[in-house]
Design a binder for these strands. Structure first.
Lengths: 161, 161
DNA sequence: ACCATTTAGTCAGGTGGTCTGACCATCGTC
DNA sequence: GACGATGGTCAGACCACCTGACTAAATGGT
């Protein structure tokens, strides 16, 4: 999915795939989508079938000691309302809990709760597995180059670096 | 946004950004998101403020000679219903048109229509501009390596290659 | 101390995107 | 020419997300 790929330069009428030079952003999209799909499918298969993509995107940004709702919203690039809504669902399902922030009476920290720990562990395994497959396909050196380039690119494309 | 980043390995309590080693899929996500946001903002600023992200994602996959709805849906990984709905909107707004497929009485080809041509041209310009910025940041050689690595990765992550 | 401003979070209402399920028309084949 | 597969549409529902308006607590200047 991508507004990015607003365009295709290849010239084959009725083309179905697109062999032309694709823009970089679109190329970035495929691995991301593949990982997301794989992760969601595996989690569902292992019994966590009540997780949605949006919930995962929020949950993924919870730090070890808990994270404020506002920070979650900012990092995920959604509004506080949306983040709040998703955290509500996650809390109801037992994946996270909200505790008061000891350093700020207004704030509460969203923390991974019991059921969430299991999901995180599983997700970590799947991630490592998929990355290993990619490394096997690309080779160690190219993978390292890829990671380095993406990390540098992040400097100018991630507003919350 | 990413279920991909289900996990963070860094250990700083109350961390807000994440300096630890990020998984590759998440790293892929930042450039994609940045391009999408830039594209949407520019298009809106130039008067195409009735375009949504989802519409762009569908429109982006229309080939020069037109593309079938089913193919658009498959490539964008959405259902035919969703694709149809989005094409309806694009058609109503004058960006695309539907013509009968001469080779198949059941099918119709979605083609870029008058107003869509202007968008495509503008989008192409913005894409080139953003890629140029990235190249300036990374350097020619690293950019070329990045593209090559992503293209190879696409071989195993894009089901509609 | 006090008030103004900012920040954390919530509530209400609405739109858009996406899905599942059921359905019709046409194609290709035996 | 009948039948399974394919292209597309219709109906209804849910989820994600947004804008706008609001409360409560922290912060900073006088």
């Amino acid at each position: 999915m991508s507004v990015c790929d607003e365009v295709r330069q290849d010239g084959d009428p009725r083309d179905h795939g697109g062999q032309g030079r694709q823009n970089l952003a679109l190329l970035c999209f495929y691995p991301h989508r593949a990982m997301e799909a794989r992760l969601l499918a595996t989690l569902a298969a292992e019994g966590f079938d009540d997780l949605t993509i949006a919930q995962g995107r929020i949950a993924a940004r919870i730090g070890p000691g808990g994270t404020r709702l506002t920070d979650l919203a900012a990092q995920a690039l959604v509004t506080k309302q949306t983040a709040n809504h998703l955290v509500d669902q996650l809390e109801r399902a037992g994946y996270v809990r909200r505790v008061p922030d000891p350093t700020d009476g207004r704030a509460r920290l969203v923390q991974i709760a019991g059921r969430g720990q299991a999901v995180v562990a599983l997700a970590r395994r799947v991630e490592a597995e998929v990355e290993a497959e990619w490394t096997a396909h690309l080779g160690e050196e190219v993978t390292a180059q890829l990671r380095a380039a993406l990390e540098r690119l992040r400097e100018i494309t991630d507003p919350y670096r």
